[in-house]
Every structure is written in structure tokens, then in C-alpha cells.
């Protein structure tokens, strides 16, 4: 291998995946008061995979850097990434109630890639809060790099060649690409392990830098407007029918209504 791999893992702090999100009173977003936040599960998989790549390919990975965009509270997801095995991290600090759009995220990440000299970006295929599924692709586009989305398996082939398997209908698609590359992770890639206490303690001493978007000369412009949020209509209760005749007449009735 000629060049060493420098991994960048962007992570996001989101409402815990196991909780049911509630729409806020003004119907402009999700209620975030008194709700548990955790690292986006797909991003957790990305951090785990970065650490696995380092473990399974001795001497190949030079560094793993984790980055997140959010309020100071987002530091906790960086700590999770550091405890899992990332070496260093950066928080791009924005206002707590600021929603930042995928394109702006990608622009910021591009700057971080340049700043850190990364040649391998691995991140979740989407964040479970807005389910945009855009950042990985946009980032690859902005950088002009190869991209492999929804990775179910990553194999580091010899001499600068990355092989990525993605699950598609009826089989597996295999993509091969050289560095530099952006990879987004699917659920199948790995199952993040429990983090041991000594790692958590070490993580507290690892570097966590803080920057503002202005420091990176990125201007954040909103291009999207959320009109209103609503929960899907609840399903109507079922009706019991006594026999086939009644079933048929009920179906006819429903057809008329529709």
C-alpha cells in the first residue's frame, strides 16, 4: 500500500432510535425537550467499521477523526466515537435550535476533509431524524471522489483498492474503487459492540476541538422551508363480519365511499 488511510467519520446527534418522536405544538419540528438523544445508529456503525478496518489491517490506518455539527450537547456523540476508538474529533458548533440542511453539512464536511487531509470518509447512509440520505452523495460530488453507498461489507483490497458490497434486490452488487472514497453504511455492515469502561475513560483525554462554520468560511443558507408537520392519519378500526355475504356487501359499501 502506497498511501496510508486517513479516515474521517461524520456523526450526528439524533433523538434515540428506540423512542417514538413527537411533533411539537407549533408543528414546525420534533419535540426535543426532555427527550433522550444518542448517536445516529448508522453513524455508530460507521465508527465501529472504521475501528474494525484499523484492527484488521495492521499499520494501514494512520488516523480516525470524528466530526459532528451541532450544539455543545453534541460533544457527547463525539465522546461515544472517541470511546469506540476514534483518535481525535471536532465539533462544528452551531446554535441549538438551528436545523442545518444536507448541502450545508456537505460543504462543511468538505472543508474538514481538506483540513484533516482525509482520504476515506465513512458515514451513515442517513440520519434517522430527517432520513435525508443525501450528505454522503453530495460530499462525494463536491469532492469529486468515488462513492459507495449503503455498504453491507467493506473489504480493503491490496494496493489502494476498496471493495464494497451493497445489498440489492435479488443479490449483491460489488463496487470497486481506489482512494479517495466516500462510503455510507447500511444496517447490515456490523453490530456496534458495548464500549468498555477503560475506553470511555481514555476518551475523556482525547482531543475534542471546537470550530464555528465561519472559521471554515462556509456560509449556511437555508434553501428549504418546512411548512407544517403532521402525524399520519390513524388507521380506522376493523369491522367484524359474520359471513361471506356480509363481507361482500361491506366491500361494496367501502368501494362506493372511496
Amino acid at each position: 500500500m502506497s498511501s496510508k488511510i486517513k479516515i474521517l467519520v461524520p456523526v450526528k446527534r439524533v433523538i434515540d432510535a428506540a423512542l417514538k418522536p413527537r411533533i411539537n405544538k407549533t408543528k414546525t419540528g420534533i419535540e426535543s425537550q426532555g427527550v433522550k438523544f444518542s448517536i445516529n445508529p448508522f453513524d455508530d456503525i460507521a465508527v465501529e467499521e472504521a475501528c474494525k478496518i484499523r484492527k484488521n489491517n495492521k499499520g494501514l490506518v494512520e488516523s480516525i477523526h470524528a466530526v459532528t455539527i451541532g450544539s455543545t450537547k453534541a460533544k457527547e456523540v463525539l465522546r461515544t466515537a472517541l470511546a469506540r476508538g476514534a483518535d481525535t474529533s471536532t465539533l462544528i458548533e452551531i446554535n441549538e435550535d438551528k436545523q442545518i440542511e444536507p448541502l450545508a453539512v456537505s460543504k462543511i464536511l468538505k472543508k474538514i476533509v481538506e483540513k484533516e487531509g482525509s482520504n476515506f470518509v465513512i458515514l451513515g447512509k442517513q440520519a434517522i431524524d430527517d432520513d435525508s440520505n443525501q450528505v454522503g452523495q453530495m460530499l462525494a460530488g463536491l469532492l469529486g471522489w468515488s462513492q459507495a453507498t449503503n455498504a453491507a461489507k467493506i473489504i480493503i483490497e491490496n494496493d489502494n483498492l476498496i471493495k464494497v458490497e451493497r445489498e440489492i434486490d435479488g443479490g449483491v452488487e460489488v463496487i470497486e474503487a481506489p482512494l479517495p472514497i466516500v462510503i455510507t453504511t447500511d444496517l447490515r455492515l456490523n453490530e456496534p459492540k458495548f464500549i468498555k469502561l477503560p475506553m470511555m475513560m481514555k476518551a475523556k483525554k482525547k482531543p475534542l476541538g471546537v470550530l464555528k462554520p465561519e472559521d471554515l468560511n462556509v456560509e449556511i443558507n437555508d434553501r428549504l422551508e418546512t411548512i407544517s408537520l403532521d402525524v399520519p392519519p390513524t388507521r380506522k378500526a376493523g369491522v367484524m363480519v359474520k359471513n361471506v355475504d356480509e363481507l361482500i356487501s361491506k366491500l361494496k359499501e367501502l368501494e362506493k365511499q372511496a
Binding site: 434515540d16 432510535a17 428506540a18 423512542l19 433522550k36 444518542s38 448517536i39 445508529p41 455508530d44 461515544t80 458495548f194 464500549i195 468498555k196 469502561l197 470511555m200
Partner: peptide, 8 residues
Amino acid sequence: GTVSQDEQ
């Protein structure tokens, strides 16, 4: 030891 990182 370990500490849970999320609800799951």
C-alpha cells in the same frame, strides 16, 4: 464494565 450508549 460498560455503560449503555442508547436505549437499545
